[in-house]
Design a binder for these strands. Structure first.
Length: 780
RNA sequence: GCUCGAUUAGCUCAGUUGGUUAGAGCGCACGAUUCACAUUCGUGAGGUCUCAGGUUCGAGUCCUGAAUCGAGCACCA
């Protein structure tokens, strides 16, 4: 054996060995274990983990290494126990993330998504993702992930898509899907709506403008929306405004007077600002609700690209006399971005003497897009929603009954909080890269359907009824970019087009709508038998940062679709931070690339450094010293084995006669006792999902007890070689889930030739297929 | 504002149902070493376990309160 363990020399070879034995495939493992003589233990339990699918087009980062290290440890442990063990791998299409990356690429080539019809664009992204699809898989293999790659699933595999569509139809039939016109969280930069979860609230200082509003003064941070105010609201108890209640007024403004009624609503806080507020149902969620209660019209002034739209005013100008000054202003504002228009308006307000005062340091919270940071614009849009309450109810019951257990520093309470306060889930996304919503609009029944399509690369927009006079239905449907069906559009929910001249909805599902179904789609996509055999799964292991996005929704959908919780235990790991405990980020330059660590220190060192002393739900700091220390551990394991294989015989002959070996039998007994205790302890720790603790226990006992004390004892003849070797084998097996490569490499070394004090030829050819140590197996 | 988590050695963190002198890695000091491993070994320094109460024969661990840091949610024009 080499003097030191050289990971670069063994890792690839060992991976090939595991592949040769097909050791990740539960079917083959069963056969191997039963046929082996003597037969290796096989239980009647299953153990399944469905892998959190990484984005198919992304290289892996340290967070992925964390999940590989933890999940693979659990998987290898259960495989060794003899359970029917499956780790089902896959990747995600990652809708918005991927499309965004792809659009950036287009931009570099001076192209834009609007040059392509949706089908072409989809194909282009598909090809792009396919190009990169092997990367994630290969990187996970390098980490030693013993997932069954023959059962690999991609989120957009036809079978998966089919199931996702069926689920939508089923939800619809059970009246858990509805289409509604309401304010949605829209990111004008990403060009799509989001659910409440994707909105990140941040504190920000903005000017609060006090504007003269006829006889009143109102305070607002958004003067740009005031043109479309539909009412004024006051608290019914406020004595200042009692006389105005129910009165309709002409309020002078930048574009002439607006007619408004003063309404009373309990929710208006008399203490805030001036105690009177303007109501803009089209651009404020609170006002939208208020507007609903009082039947106010929804009159948008901001477009989906975040620009001011004064077309309504120009239309009005055609019908009635408008002061040219106002018309000029409207033209000035029209088409401007919101922030820019606001500046112009404030200037004009000053000019008209309508600006009473400005509070420049007004601190408030605004919603921003979680991915690009753009301020979220609440815009009225018809979208498909999932009625969540009947679904969350079931999850809360399951949690209460203990059907599913969440492990991770109080995150179970956060989950409960989410479930109790969840709003209906907007699942419509205005992007191409995803699963298209199976909703169909008849062209004949909906002549007002607003559509965009391409004609020789040029974007054409308009109402379908009109456009059909110039273009054929075929041409439109083939080069369709998007539909904007009005709220009253008639639609059919169906897997296939219900007839001729139907256009399918162009919105796609929220990525999480398909991810939420991953535990069953992933298993069903290969065979119904797999689903019966491995579902429900045992563990869902993932980062706490996607608890509401993913875990919560998997529970909701799993219970809806299968009447079972999709997994019994949720294990949440924390963020991986750098050595100083700081978040990793490209801008800080403290990002650790797992592949670099593997090259330098080996996959085992990387895995062990991440797992040792990690605690579910809490963040973990790692750095070079940790990787180095764990690399040293791999070497320590290697050298302990080298001593047993090559050093013991020399020691034997030297010491045997003179020392008399009086204490040997007593020491041997004590050694085996402790080894048994340790085996039980580590087994229990892993079973209890205390993997960080198990790894630490192993490290300490191996290094400071087994190596520092026991190996030294054998040199003095105080411990027998047979007993020590048994100790090594036991440690190797206990270590294997955490450090698969070095333990397997040593195992192969020990199997090469029989040693007089160690017989393992009865055991499996690979450590990965060997059996987990038990009380009774730790003996001579 | 509501909810949750954290606070233990110079740094990063463990501490397994409450039980002897509280641990690891890294760092530090001194020493050893052809005998598995310098990716090593030995010895040592370094902790009023955030603070204040309480329960208990016994508290880092359980309870109450406070402080600081962090997270999630809600924040009103």
């Amino acid at each position: 054996m080499d003097k030191a363990y050289l990971h670069t020399q063994y890792e690839e070879e060992i991976s090939k060995l595991w592949e040769k034995f097909d050791a990740f495939n539960p079917d083959r493992v069963r056969v191997y274990k039963t046929n082996h003589s003597p037969a290796l233990p096989v239980t009647d339990k299953t153990f399944t983990i469905v892998m959190p699918p990484p984005n198919a087009n992304d290289p892996l980062h340290i967070g992925h290494a964390m999940f590989v290290a933890l999940e693979d440890a659990m998987i290898r442990f259960h495989r060794m126990l003899g359970d029917d063990t499956l780790w089902a791998p896959g990747t995600d299409h990652a809708g918005i993330e991927t499309q965004f990356v792809f659009e950036k690429k287009l931009k570099k080539n001076n192209q834009s998504r609007f040059q392509f019809d949706r089908e072409t664009l989809y194909k282009m992204i598909w090809d792009y993702v396919q190009e990169n699809s092997g990367i994630a898989q290969n990187q996970m293999k390098k980490m030693g992930a013993s997932a069954d790659w023959s059962r690999f699933t991609f989120m957009l595999d036809p079978k998966v898509v089919e199931i996702v569509l069926e689920t939508f139809v089923e939800l619809y039939q059970k009246e858990l899907i509805y289409r509604d016109y309401r304010l949605v969280n829209y990111c004008t930069k990403c060009g799509t709506a989001f659910s409440e979860l994707e909105v990140k609230h941040i504190e920000q200082t903005d000017p609060l403008y006090y504007i003269k509003y006829g006889p009143f003064t109102i305070a607002t941070v958004r003067p740009e929306t005031k043109f479309r105010d539909t009412a004024l609201a006051v608290n019914p108890e406020d004595p200042r405004y009692k006389e105005w209640l129910g009165k309709t007024l002409e309020i002078p403004g930048l574009l002439g007077p607006i007619t408004m009624t003063v309404i009373a609503d309990e929710e208006v806080d008399p203490e805030f600002g001036t105690g009177i507020m303007k109501v803009t149902p089209a651009h404020d969620p609170h006002d939208f609700e208020l507007g609903k209660r009082y039947n106010l019209p929804v009159t948008p002034i901001i477009t989906l690209d975040g620009r001011m739209d004064f077309n309504w005013f120009f239309e009005k100008a055609e019908k009635e006399e408008i002061d040219p000054k106002y018309l000029e202003r409207a033209h000035k504002y029209h088409g401007k971005k919101v922030a820019e228009a606001r500046k112009l308006m404030v200037e004009d307000l000053k000019e008209d003497g309508l600006l009473v005062k400005t509070d420049e340091k007004y601190l408030h919270t605004i919603g921003t897009c979680y991915r690009c940071g753009t301020t979220i614009e609440p815009l009225p849009l018809p979208q498909f929603f999932v009625k969540v309450q009947p679904l969350t109810e079931k999850v809360l019951h399951a949690l209460k009954d203990g059907d599913v257990k969440v492990i991770g520093a109080g995150h179970d309470k956060i989950l409960k909080h989410w479930l109790e306060n969840l709003k209906d889930w907007n699942i419509s996304r205005q992007i191409v890269w995803g699963i298209r919503i199976p909703v169909w609009y008849s062209v004949k029944e909906n002549p007002d359907l607003e559509i965009h399509f391409t004609d020789n690369g040029q974007r054409v927009s308009g109402k379908i009824g009109e456009l059909l006079k110039t273009y054929s239905f075929e041409q439109i449907s083939q080069t369709l970019q998007e539909l904007r069906p009005p709220m009253n559009a008639r639609y059919t929910v169906a897997l296939q087009s219900p007839g001729d001249e139907y256009l399918q909805e162009t919105d796609t599902f929220d990525t999480w709508f398909s991810s939420a179904q991953w535990p069953y789609t992933c298993l069903q996509s290969h065979s119904e038998k797999d689903f019966e055999r491995f579902y429900p799964t045992q563990v869902m292991e993932t980062g706490y940062d996607i608890l509401p996005f993913w875990v919560m929704r998997m529970l909701m959908m799993g219970l809806f679709k299968t009447q079972k919780v999709p997994f019994e235990t949720v294990y949440l790991h924390g963020l991986v931070r750098d050595q100083k405990g700081q978040k990793m980020s490209k801008s800080k330059g403290n990002v650790i690339n797992p592949l670099t660590v593997i090259e330098q220190y080996g996959a085992d060192a990387l895995r062990m450094a991440l797992v040792i002393r990690s605690t579910p739900g809490l963040d973990k700091s790692v750095g070079d010293p940790d990787f180095r220390a764990m690399r040293n551990l791999t070497n320590k394991i290697w050298n302990a084995a080298r001593y047993i294989k090559e050093g013991l015989s020399r020691v034997e002959s030297d010491v045997q006669e003179e020392k008399g070996l009086i204490n040997q039998s007593k020491n041997n007994e004590e050694f085996l006792d402790k080894l048994r205790t340790l085996t039980t302890q580590v087994t229990q720790q892993i079973t209890d999902y205390k993997l960080g603790l198990a790894a630490e226990t192993l490290h300490n006992e191996f290094w400071h007890w087994f190596c520092d004390e026991c190996i030294e004892q054998t040199k003095k003849g105080e411990l027998s070689p047979e007993v020590l070797s048994r100790g090594l084998v036991t440690f190797l097996k206990l270590f294997h889930p955490f450090m698969p490569y070095v333990t397997e490499a040593v195992w192969q070394q020990l199997r090469q030739e029989p040693l007089p004090w160690l017989s393992i030829t009865d055991d499996a050819e690979c450590m990965i297929l060997s059996s987990w140590p038990t009380q009774s197996s730790v003996t001579l």
